[in-house]
Design a protein around this nucleic acid. Structure first.
Lengths: 292, 292
DNA sequence: CAAAGTCCTGAATCATATG
DNA sequence: ACATATGATTCAGGACTTT
């Protein structure tokens, strides 16, 4: 994460005016109403209220539907437990339900994209294949799969499968015919392995001070994405002044990095605790505390 | 490729008795009839004639569905399987064809697998997402996606997208309940990056002397897989004496490496020119010419 | 203060046996 | 099918503690 502070001399709202609370009464939002805002509300409901062909890029970090067992995994020697992802937002009753959810989100996102916009979706093997298939069926044209190789993944203790050290990002345009989308070739060459602009990014997961904590010092979000990942996404596929949409914002890494890189953002998040985390991050920007 | 020669003192057939020609009259094959044979015939037709729960591992390198007009799947003549319906939208109809073809292949492969067998499927982003989704819907339980990072990928750098330097392998068992499948953790640690047996393999594409040529010196097969890739697949997920099935054998890298590593194989290939290439490779083994 | 050692944890579909 | 009891296992990296 090599973000520079851009000071306060800009037109972004302060943390306190950051949030727009969605209501059933709100029929629709103009671009100006939601630009550089976090909309507190349901992803799909809010997406449907956004104007068509409005944004330059979409980043989606959806629930992965990990299907983890309810039983806890206890470390030997160490008394701690493995805190697996058990959030309600990752619970689906079946693949059908998951597919329906993702189809709706991806369909609305496609409507909101400008004709030459691009979209990124990240997931692991648990769901990335379903997502990619749905995207192709909706008409999206896949440009790349980009492999995020984690330098510090959770190892596979019992030695029954390969250590899952990767996540996959799908990068696509709305349609096969789209040609003039934004791609920063110099940034791509810088990040990919081997100086050939390869589709492989090697970087660590989000830990340490970057990881937001709740009041008790526990992680605020179980799957916070690293700043560096979003930095690469934004610098390779957007320009300054572009509008970036993240309908499943979580603790808002997308908008946070977009703000630091002079991009505009629209974020949607339904969990007020996560939105509080976003506000804290934006307060930090105002105070000049940005990642170096 | 660090394969050792195992000499001629074994029970594998010589190259000349390697091939079994499938015929419409053949109702079904016993394991002994096809063990360590190449069956010249249609993948799906032959698969249906194989006994159930017969093999320990399946490796499938299917056609890649590059979505090139008029080129997709010609070799497979899948149209006859799905009949009409597809005079609507070109892309969608070709998706239907591909999905139908892969569903049938993967369904029959699942029947032929022993209860604790595993399956590998390799593809690029053009088709891997559809394949993974189909596998999950058929009941397969994905163990890993393994990323093959090519050190010398096709230099397709036009500056409009990332250089596609990867292929993805899906490794799965028949069902979520399967536990006692073969996994060689030490081999996994040796091959994966880092010391954690990660799901990332870095190795070059098949070039040089390893690449089979036709009579005019042109490459015999457009997507011949490297020996080293199959070596890793076989050493991580099979034991000596196991039976490995490859229903889309191409120039037979799977069986060739299996033979060198004392595994048994069953290969299916419809193209006689490819089968001739396989015979040549097995003649080379008899002559002691194996990859070092 | 620096260096060395300890602790903690991370999107994890991670086992087997018995009731 | 589910619940419970028991047993065996991992590495990178940052935070924290001790020397």
């Amino acid at each position: 994460m090599k973000l520079k502070a851009y000071g306060k001399e800009n037109s972004y709202p302060c943390a306190e005016s950051l949030v727009v609370v969605d209501t059933p009464q709100a029929q629709g939002y103009s671009l100006e109403q939601v630009k550089n805002k976090v909309i507190l509300g349901d992803a799909l409901k809010v997406l449907k209220k956004l104007p068509s062909e409005a944004v330059d890029m979409v980043f989606i970090d959806p629930p992965y539907f990990l299907q983890l067992p309810n039983k806890t995994l206890r470390r030997w020697k160490v008394k701690s437990l493995v805190e697996a992802v058990q959030d309600d937002w990752d619970k689906f009753s079946s693949f059908v339900e998951y597919d329906t959810f993702m189809t709706q989100i991806l369909s609305e996102a496609r409507r909101v994209m400008k004709p030459n916009a691009t979209i990124w979706v990240i997931a692991t093997y648990h769901s990335i294949f379903r997502i990619g298939k749905i995207m192709q069926d909706l008409g999206y044209w896949i440009l790349n799969d980009v492999i995020w190789v984690k330098t510090n993944p959770m190892p596979n203790w019992l030695g029954v499968r390969f250590t899952n050290a990767t996540e996959t990002l799908i990068w696509a345009v709305k349609d096969k015919k789209v040609k003039k989308y934004t791609f920063n070739r110099e940034a791509a060459k810088e990040y990919g392995i081997g100086k050939i602009g390869a589709n492989v990014w090697v970087l660590p997961i989000c830990t340490g001070a970057e990881r937001l904590k709740d009041g008790r010092g526990k992680r605020l979000h179980s799957t916070q994405k690293p700043v560096e990942l979003l930095r690469r996404v934004l610098l390779t596929s957007t320009k300054e002044g572009d509008i970036v949409l993240d309908p499943v914002a979580g603790v808002g890494t997308t908008g946070y990095v977009a703000r630091c890189l002079k991009r505009n953002f629209i974020m949607i998040e339904i969990n007020p605790r996560y939105v509080e985390g976003i506000k804290k991050r934006f307060r930090d920007i105002s105070l000049g505390n940005v990642p170096e």
